[in-house]
Simulated scan of single mutants.
Amino acid sequence: MANIEPEDTETTLPRRQLGRLLRDARATTGMNLDQAAALVQWSRPTLSRLERGETEKVRVTDILALCEAYGLDEDTTAVAKGLATQAPAKSWWQAYSDLIPAWANLFVGLESSATSLTTFQPLIVHGLLQTADYARALDRLHFPDDTEHELERRIRVRTQRQHILTRSRHPAEMSIVLHENVLRTVVGTPRLMAAQCRHVADVSTRDNIDVRVMPFHAGLPLGAAVPPFTIMDFGSDARSTQVVEPAQVYCEGYAGSAYLEKRTDVVKFRQAFRKLQRASLDARPSRDMIREIARRHESQG
């Protein structure tokens, strides 16, 4: 069945992310909407609109008052303040990279709320499928000034992210196309890559994870190079069947990342993914190929 994209709305990503941050903070305190609204002398509907990301103008003083009421720490309060003051933009995360460290960037918030992820990776193994050793080898190169303690914090966050695929209740669904280059490029050592490839093959047997390999001989199905991207869908409200949030496209970049929200952008990337998937091997042949590449890495180690 074809995906039906909702019409564009006026809600923008920074406001939705701010709303989710505050909603989660309130839930952690155990307060309901009425109790939290009373603390800052708001009405229940006003706070509810803010948590849904539907407030057009957000005052920083109001956000700081809520952060104080919820007992948020300085770092989280800084993130909330940054979101409250940021004008809507596709690449808003870049402007706040000094506030949001890479290991805790707000993509994790979107990812953790998604019910399904549709992903293309042409260069490296996706973070949700990385082994700890693979992630550590990458991070040592990308963050050369980190201490061992800081590197391990990054690995822990990566591991926590992966829980959305492995949790026992309602795991997120993932459909991913990996270019053959991802599997053959040696990160760390051949032995490390062998273990990483076997891990990808193993997780691809899960009912909620579909892994396809696009072989070298597939060429360029779109006639152009395509950056790594993930389409995030957030499901619908069971009571109203309304979409909880519009789908998001996250495009990775070396200096920063872009979030695409417009319906036309989401449709374009869905169409691109379908072409990439059609050019890829089916699930079973993909798994066989991944395991064969693992054996080759093992023999070189």
Rank of each mutant, 00 (worst) to 15 (best):
I176C: 03
P221F: 14
E298S: 11
T118S: 04
E261W: 00
M214K: 13
R169F: 11
H179S: 08
E152G: 01
T118Y: 00
L18I: 07
S112W: 09
T166H: 08
P6A: 10
A283P: 03
Q17M: 14
R287M: 10
L39M: 06
A69V: 12
Q160S: 08
E150F: 01
K81S: 01
P6G: 08
E292N: 11
F143R: 15
Y250N: 07
P171I: 09
G71W: 15
A201C: 12
L222M: 07
W92T: 10
S204F: 04
T9L: 01
T119N: 15
Y96A: 09
F120A: 09
G19M: 05
R191N: 02
M193A: 03
E150Y: 00
M174Q: 13
S112V: 13
R158I: 02
L165G: 08
D145Q: 09
I4E: 15
A172Q: 05
G127V: 05
M232A: 03
C251T: 13
W92H: 06
D237Y: 07
R212N: 13
S204P: 07
E152Y: 02
H297R: 06
L117I: 12
T185V: 00
V157Q: 08
V108K: 14
A201P: 12
E111G: 06
E51A: 10
G223E: 08
R26P: 06
G223V: 11
R291G: 06
R158C: 00
G127R: 07
A225W: 01
S91A: 15
E298M: 05
L128A: 14
A37W: 04
G109I: 14
R23A: 14
E51K: 10
T76A: 01
R23C: 11
G256F: 01
A218F: 05
A272C: 04
E261K: 01
T185S: 04
L83E: 04
D146S: 14
I293G: 06
L22C: 12
R49T: 04
V40H: 11
N208P: 03
I176R: 02
D202G: 04
D288E: 15
W92Y: 11
T28Q: 14
P144I: 12
S240L: 04
N105L: 03
R26H: 07
V108T: 14
Y259E: 10
N105G: 10
I155S: 11
F234W: 10
V182C: 13
Q94V: 04
D202W: 00
G82H: 09
R156S: 03
E5K: 08
R278Y: 00
Q35P: 03
T119S: 15
I63A: 11
Y250D: 03
E111H: 05
L13Q: 06
V177S: 02
N105P: 08
D146A: 14
Q271P: 00
I155M: 12
A102W: 15
S236Y: 10
F120P: 09
I231R: 05
V266F: 12
V226G: 09
D233H: 13
T166P: 00
